[in-house]
Amino acid sequence: MGILEVSNVNKRFGGLQALGNVNLDIAKGTVHAIIGPNGAGKSTLLNCLIGKLIPDTGTVMFNGISVLGRKPYEINQLGISRVFQTPEIFGNLTVFENMLIPCFAKRDGSFRMHALESIAAERDIIEKAEHMLAEVNMSDKRHMTASSLSRGDKRRLEMAMCLVQEPKLLLLDEPTAGMARADTNNTIDLLNQIHDSREITMVIIEHDMHVVFSLAKRITVLAQGTPLVEDTPDNIKGHPKVKEAYLGEAAA
């Protein structure tokens, strides 16, 4: 039994069948990539996993608990973190304050009235945040306003904010979209290093094959809302169905 089980998920937008009978079983500790051409339903599937969309039929179970109909913050509290296509960080706050927020959320839950406590007195939280910043090599930028960071650094910060919560599952939506090659490679190294050190289960939605084949242990190919194949990267590379989906029938 996997950490995340998607069974018989269907989603229609009017006349468009965005997802048709999707079954996925994501094993604990793996890096699972979901690839597919534009319009294959990757983002719709991800949105179903985090409660943004509710599928028409089917179930999404995380560690035996259904995530359907739960609010995003409840899903996060269950142990699922998400990295967005464009980094979502607290732009007006400093890098360090950005790190503090997930630490408090992890410890105090979705709401706590701690209006008269002093941040300076929260030694454990500060230490945790500093430790994480050091791990992603951003300690020297701690006093910078987050919105003034470079795109690569914003991505790093966002990942650090997710990781400091020690999630059981990390969802990444095109983590290298719009990045230069050097930044892409840095991100790949960072993700590999994270996976090796923490054994976090990751689900990656990605366009860039270079990224997919450098990271994924398993790959699901999605086309027109249905999974075509699920296999290891080596087997996927030469798979005729995959070529067909990506390059059209003529190439197959």
Partner: peptide, 8 residues
């Protein structure tokens, strides 16, 4: 981000 950090 607030929502996806587990805060209501």
């Amino acid at each position: 981000r607030m929502n996806y950090t587990g805060l209501n």
